[in-house]
Design a binder for these strands. Structure first.
Length: 819
RNA sequence: GCCCGGGUGGUGGAAUGGCAGACACAAGGGACUUAAAAUCCCUUGGGGAGAAAUCCCCGUGCGGGUUCGACCCCCGCCCCGGGCACCA
């Protein structure tokens, strides 16, 4: 027989959820509506993909954090936009369709229903009237519309390029969706092997925005580590292109280098095996060896080619080039340590000042020539830092920065090269050979593509019974004969957009979700995105270079089209840390350490789950689940409950006789003021673990009182509301509070109530703690010094030695320096 | 290899130049109870002295430094987590 619940959360929680829904108290006022005159706050979660597995406690951590902030801001009197929706296109539903024949729409609807139920059971204060589903034609109509804007701007194009193809998923993937693993490159979703294949694909020209995506990171209040990840991904480098002429032919080979100052030390040149000039430049006697090498390189997996431990291989091609700076002739090699996909696919090798060139030179007995020495100290065999040039003609004696400038000027003046900025960022591979995604609003007339008219949007998916990918590599949409073919012979684009498309702009749709004539009205966008966009965005760090980079890119395009009012979408971003299983390992089905929110809510209630997840530790930190800790949260909430109710002999909850209508005593006033100050401060800083700790201190104080002033408990209810809203409502109602506490004003306190009459001053002698002393709060520095000098224990503290110096830290300590 | 985080009691964590360990978990003791659960109260970093109130020593990964004073700032290491990785 189950023991009695420590407090009746199972009855309380659904009742208040219903009351909130009926009162529509979390509705955000659109600009122009009553309520919109208040300051706005846009508090956003990364909306989930509604999986079959349901929500996990990690989702709930982020959602609880934003809900706390949203509720707090609402109580501060702000007009809060706190919406939720579904990023519902994606592979899992389609894989399920392939296996079972169930239409992805059906699976998706079921999963959304389950996610919504789980989220609502937590009592989150979302404005459900703004719910979004990216698979709804009313939504993806505008995703397609935005794609057309990109298309019109020339930012969407078709290219035949080596792309990552995943045979298991039957689709191509973006660079960002491929992860390097010990077994070679794998798909981010599903961990399937992927391979390079040349294919015709839609690309988005994100590289055109590389510099702005990099620069504008400085506008953002994001974790520094995340900004750094984006910077690395964009990978800006500044250097120069240097042109080498091939001896005995008219050919020129441009190379890209970030160290043009080392040009005097270049002793050979290396081409990537895919370099287009290889076959024409190879001398007849080297032909066989070079062709063999190129063939072998092509057969190597990417892993084999990038394996660091491996020796660098390569062969000379029998050509020489001229170093433009002094006319020296140096040999040309082909080696697969040079990447075809970066720079010009060719490098000038300076073994004395580049580790890779050095390793290769040592392997192949190539000349190593030093031209840079350190500012001081001995010169290592391979010195890659900045230093001072020597044996470098007109660069001699120059420091690296200056030498780079001088040689760049020289190259430009003499027509041997130019300054150049490069980025590692590649264009975004935007098409997928899948069914369950947005169809491209594009038709093909032979080899030429064109946009379909805006008025024909949305272009919906054709009904299919068979979702199996075709062995030919043609997308599933190819099976919809009637859909794809026009009477005039034109055919539809058969690829669909990747899952990221819908999430690239959903935060804008939330501003005006019902708009049928445009994606959002300018008024709504200006209102909700004012002040730099979304005010708080919370989600997992796994989206650092995927969603967050793509969305920033689209936003900038929209900004250039005057469709949004600020260049960045998300002003402040916080990553919630992963919640590990109780065994300190990542939660996973196979380890059997997954905690189900449904079960936790049934056993302990939603408020307890909210409080516990926030009390575990700092939001950003990785932390393990603890079922004992969970019970601690329940215990805390039931202590709050028992401030108001007492259990009778018959097991009923009756109003506690300790409650009184009296005014709170000084200590209680102080306890309330302190808790209010601390909780308010911590809410602003998103430090909820310490905020809850302050609430616990207050509850412990109130529990200890013989007579509990109702006003004090009502004050507590308001402080508690963002964290445990159901219980706060119940306590508030039982004590006769007005209306809903969820929309009550955030409590305030008087500064003077924080003051104690006296405080304990620690007394140190030569920085060692020696004693304590009670000092009245209003005591001046002189008063305190007098008190210390007059203290009977002073002589024993100092060993009778004279005090030479007194260092006072107001209200904290006094350090006496003797000897 | 490079770039970010981080290392504090038995555990999760507080304290970012001023009395280390708030708050909670666990543990131990007590009250209530026929008993248990629940609840309430007390103790709880380690070591030592004392009959006791108390008092002393040590202690924030390791080694140096700055400072009246360092978990906090600086230098050099070690370990853990995350990201990037032949990008010239």
């Amino acid at each position: 027989m189950p023991t009695r619940a420590p407090y009746p959360f199972a009855e309380i929680e659904p009742r208040w959820q219903k009351a909130w829904a009926e009162a529509r108290c979390f509705r955000a006022a659109q600009p122009g509506e009553p309520g919109s005159e208040r300051p706005k706050a846009y508090i956003l979660d990364m909306f989930p993909y509604p999986s079959a597995a349901g929500l996990h406690v990690g989702h709930l951590e982020g959602y609880t954090a934003t809900d706390i902030v949203a509720r707090y801001r609402r109580m501060l009197g702000q007009n809060v936009l706190h919406p939720m929706g579904w990023d519902a296109f994606g592979l899992p539903a389609e894989q399920h369709a392939v296996q079972t024949g169930t239409h992805p729409r059906v699976t998706t609807a079921t999963n959304i229903g389950n996610f919504r139920r789980q989220i609502q059971a937590m009592g989150f204060s979302y404005d459900w009237e703004r719910e979004i589903d990216t698979t709804d034609p009313k939504y993806f109509r505008w995703t397609q519309w935005i794609f057309l804007k990109l298309y019109e701007k020339g930012l969407a194009y078709v290219a035949e390029a080596p792309v990552w193809y995943c045979p298991a998923l039957g689709t191509v993937l973006a660079n960002e969706e491929v992860l390097p693993t010990d077994e070679g490159p794998r798909s981010e979703r599903g961990n399937h092997p992927v391979e390079r294949r040349p294919m015709r694909q839609w690309m988005l020209r994100i590289t055109a925005y590389a510099e702005r995506l990099l620069q504008d990171l400085d506008l953002l209040e994001w974790p520094e580590s995340l900004k750094e990840m984006q910077r690395n991904w964009i990978g800006k480098s500044e250097g120069a292109e240097v042109v080498f002429s091939v001896e005995g032919s008219g050919e020129k080979i441009p190379v890209y280098t970030t160290r043009p100052d080392t040009l005097f030390g270049a002793t050979y040149l290396v081409l990537a095996p895919e370099h287009p000039l290889i076959s024409s430049l190879t001398s007849p006697d080297r032909k066989a060896a070079v062709e063999k090498y190129v063939r072998e390189s092509a057969a190597k997996s990417d892993l084999e080619r990038t394996e660091l431990a491996k020796k660098k291989t390569g062969v000379p091609i029998g050509a020489t080039v001229v170093n433009p700076v002094h006319g020296e002739k140096i040999p040309v090699w082909v080696a697969d340590y040079v990447l075809a996909s970066y720079g010009t696919g060719a490098v000038m090798a300076v073994p004395a000042h580049d580790v890779r060139d050095f390793e290769f030179a040592r392997e192949n007995n190539l000349v190593v020539r030093k031209v840079i020495r350190p500012d001081s100290g001995p010169s290592p065999d391979c010195f890659t830092e900045d230093g001072i040039n020597f044996d470098s003609g007109f660069l001699d004696g120059l420091k690296t920065a200056k030498a780079k400038a001088v040689i760049s000027d020289w190259l430009e003046k003499n027509g041997h090269g130019r300054r150049q900025v490069r980025y590692k960022l590649r264009d975004w591979l935007f098409s997928r050979q899948r069914y369950w995604g947005e169809p491209f609003p594009i038709v093909w007339k032979g080899d030429r593509h064109e946009a379909i008219p805006e008025k024909d949007l949305p272009l919906t998916l054709p009904e299919l019974a068979d979702f199996q990918p075709m062995a030919s590599g043609e997308p599933p949409l190819g099976k919809a004969e009637a859909w794809k073919k026009f009477p005039d012979g034109r055919v539809r684009e058969l690829n669909t957009m990747p899952q990221w498309a819908g999430s690239c702009w959903y935060y804008l749709r939330f501003c005006d979700p019902g708009n049928d004539s445009r994606p959002w009205s300018p008024d709504a966008e200006r209102y909700w995105m004012a002040g730099g966009g979304v005010d708080l965005y919370v989600g997992g760090a796994e989206h650092a270079v995927l969603h967050l980079l793509y969305a920033r890119f689209w936003h900038k395009v929209l900004f250039d089209l005057n469709l949004v009012s600020h260049p960045e979408p998300f002003r402040r971003l916080v990553n919630q840390g992963i919640i590990l299983g109780e065994d300190n390992r990542k939660m996973s089905k196979s380890l059997g350490n997954v905690v189900s929110p449904d079960e936790v809510i049934r056993e302990h209630g939603a408020d307890a789950l909210r409080v516990f997840e926030m009390f575990l530790g700092p939001l950003e930190q990785m932390k393990p689940w603890s079922s004992k800790g969970m019970e601690g949260a329940v215990r805390f909430l039931s202590r709050v409950w028992r401030l108001v109710c007492e259990e009778t002999d018959s097991g009923e909850w009756a109003t506690s006789p300790a409650l009184a209508d009296t005014a709170p005593a000084t200590e209680t006033v102080r306890a309330l003021a302190k808790a209010t100050a601390k909780v308010t401060e911590d809410l602003e800083k998103i430090q909820f673990n310490t905020a809850i700790s302050a609430l616990m201190v207050l509850v412990n104080h109130l529990t200890g009182l013989e007579k509990r002033p109702k006003s004090a408990v009502l004050h507590l209810a308001r402080l508690l509301c963002p964290f445990a809203p159901h219980l706060a409502e119940e306590v508030h109602a039982r004590l006769g509070g007005n209306g809903l506490v969820s929309v009550a004003a955030w409590p305030t306190y008087r500064k003077e109530d924080l003051q104690e009459e006296a405080f304990e001053l620690a007394v140190q002698v030569n920085s060692k703690l020696r004693g304590r002393l009670t000092v009245p709060s209003q005591a001046t520095k002189e008063d305190v010094e007098r008190l210390v000098r007059a203290h009977p224990d002073l002589a024993s503290w100092t060993g009778g030695k004279p005090v030479q110096k007194m260092i006072l830290v107001p209200r904290r300590l006094m350090n006496l320096i003797v000897e």
